[in-house]
Deep mutational scan, measured.
Amino acid sequence: MPEGSASLQLAVGDRVVYPNQGVCRVSAIDVKEVAGQKLTFVTMRREEDGAVVMVPEGKVLAIGVRKVASAE
């Protein structure tokens, strides 16, 4: 991610809310080559049905992904 860009610090195992998809758990953060460029992807699995969603790390905030609020 370019320096100075806002990002959401995620780790494998974090629970997040993905708008219009529901609650997901981060299952992987991997670098993949797409069209000759190396990009970091956040892979999330929906808790409702296990569907897998992959989002480029740089788009996580723009999409509206946020961490699940704690009970505290």
Rank of each mutant, 00 (worst) to 15 (best):
T40K: 11
K32E: 06
L61K: 10
E3L: 09
E47K: 01
V31N: 04
G64S: 05
M1Y: 12
D30A: 10
Y18I: 13
D49P: 02
P19F: 06
M1K: 13
D49T: 06
R25F: 09
V65K: 03
M54V: 14
D49C: 01
V31W: 06
V16T: 01
K38P: 07
Q21I: 15
E48R: 14
E33S: 08
I63C: 07
Y18F: 14
M54R: 09
S70I: 09
S70P: 13
G64K: 05
A35V: 04
S7L: 11
V23S: 03
N20S: 12
V52K: 06
T40G: 04
Q21L: 15
L8F: 09
Q9E: 10
G58T: 14
D30I: 14
V60C: 03
I63F: 12
A35M: 10
K38T: 09
G50S: 04
C24E: 00
T40P: 02
T40F: 06
K67C: 15
P19W: 07
C24Y: 15
R15H: 06
V68A: 07
E48A: 13
N20A: 08
A51Q: 10
A51E: 09
A28M: 07
K32Y: 14
E3I: 11
D49L: 03
I29L: 06
A71D: 13
C24T: 00
L10Q: 01
S70D: 14
K38N: 08
E3Y: 06
V52H: 06
V16K: 00
L39K: 07
D30E: 14
S5F: 08
E72P: 11
V26A: 01
R45W: 11
V34M: 07
Q9K: 14
Q21S: 08
A51P: 02
F41H: 03
M1W: 09
V65H: 04
E33P: 03
M44E: 00
V53Y: 15
V16F: 07
R46V: 04
V55K: 02
K32N: 04
E48D: 10
P19Y: 07
L8N: 07
A51K: 10
D14R: 00
D14C: 01
P56A: 07
L39Y: 09
D49F: 03
V26N: 00
E48L: 14
V42W: 03
Q37I: 15
M1P: 10
A35D: 14
R46D: 02
T40Q: 05
M54K: 07
T40S: 08
R46G: 04
G22H: 04
G36R: 03
A71P: 11
E57N: 05
S5E: 12
A28E: 07
E33V: 12
K67E: 09
Y18L: 09
T43A: 04
D14M: 05
A11Q: 13
G36K: 03
V68E: 09
T43H: 07
E72L: 10
G22L: 04
K59E: 15
V34I: 11
A69N: 14
K59N: 10
Q9M: 09
M54S: 12
I29C: 00
Q9A: 09
R15L: 14
A11V: 13
A11F: 12
G36D: 04
P19N: 06
S7Y: 10
A62F: 06
V17R: 06
G50K: 02
V52M: 11
E3D: 12
Q37F: 08
S7E: 10
S70E: 14
V60L: 15
Q9Y: 11
E72Q: 11
V52R: 05
G50R: 02
R46H: 05
K32L: 14
A28L: 06
L10K: 00
L39I: 15
I29E: 00
D30Y: 13
G4E: 12
E48H: 12
V34L: 07
Y18E: 01
E57Y: 15
S70H: 11
K67F: 14
G13R: 00
L8P: 07
R15V: 10
A6F: 10
S7A: 12
G13H: 03
V55R: 02
E3G: 11
A71N: 12
A6E: 12
V34E: 06
S70F: 09
K59P: 04
S5H: 12
E33G: 04
E47M: 05
K67G: 06
E33T: 10
V65W: 04
E48T: 13
R25G: 02
E48P: 04
R46F: 09
A51F: 15
A35Y: 09
L61F: 08
A11S: 11
M54I: 14
V42E: 00
V53S: 05
S7P: 12
G22Q: 06
Q9W: 09
L39M: 13
Q37G: 08
L39R: 07
F41N: 00
C24R: 00
Q37L: 10
Q21K: 14
Q21P: 01
V65Y: 05
V52F: 11
F41A: 01
R15E: 05
P2A: 11
V31T: 12
G36V: 01
S7V: 11
T43S: 08
F41R: 01
V68L: 14
M44L: 12
R66E: 14
R66I: 15
V60Y: 07
R45F: 10
V34G: 02
Q9F: 09
F41D: 00
V68D: 07
C24K: 00
K32S: 07
I63G: 08
G4P: 12
I63N: 10
V55C: 03
L8W: 12
L61A: 13
G4A: 13
V65N: 03
V17M: 13
A69Y: 11
G50D: 08
P56I: 06
A11K: 13
L61P: 05
G58L: 11
K67R: 07
P2L: 12
A6P: 12
A28I: 04
L39D: 04
D14Q: 03
Y18V: 13
V12I: 09
A11H: 11
K67P: 14
V42P: 00
K59C: 15
L61R: 09
G4Y: 07
A71S: 12
E57S: 15
V16D: 01
P56G: 05
V34D: 05
A6H: 13
V31Y: 08
G22T: 05
E47V: 06
A51D: 05
R66N: 14
G13T: 01
A71Y: 10
D30L: 12
G64C: 08
V52Y: 12
G4H: 13
E48Y: 14
P56D: 13
K32G: 05
D14I: 03
G13V: 02
T40E: 02
F41Y: 11
G58S: 15
M1N: 13
D14P: 01
V42T: 00
P2G: 11
V34Y: 08
I63W: 08
A71I: 12
L10F: 08
N20F: 08
V17S: 07
V17K: 04
M54N: 05
K59F: 12
V53Q: 04
D30M: 10
K59Y: 13
A62I: 11
A69R: 05
D30N: 10
V68M: 07
L61T: 09
A11T: 09
A69P: 11
F41Q: 02
A69W: 07
A35I: 03
K59D: 15
L61D: 08
E48W: 14
R66W: 13
K67Q: 08
V52L: 14
S27R: 04
Q21C: 06
T40D: 01
A69M: 10
V26W: 01
Q37E: 12
K59H: 14
M44S: 00
V17D: 08
V16A: 04
E47R: 01
A6R: 07
G13W: 02
S27L: 11
V60D: 04
S70T: 11
Q37D: 05
V17C: 00
E47F: 04
G13A: 01
F41G: 00
E3C: 04
G58I: 10
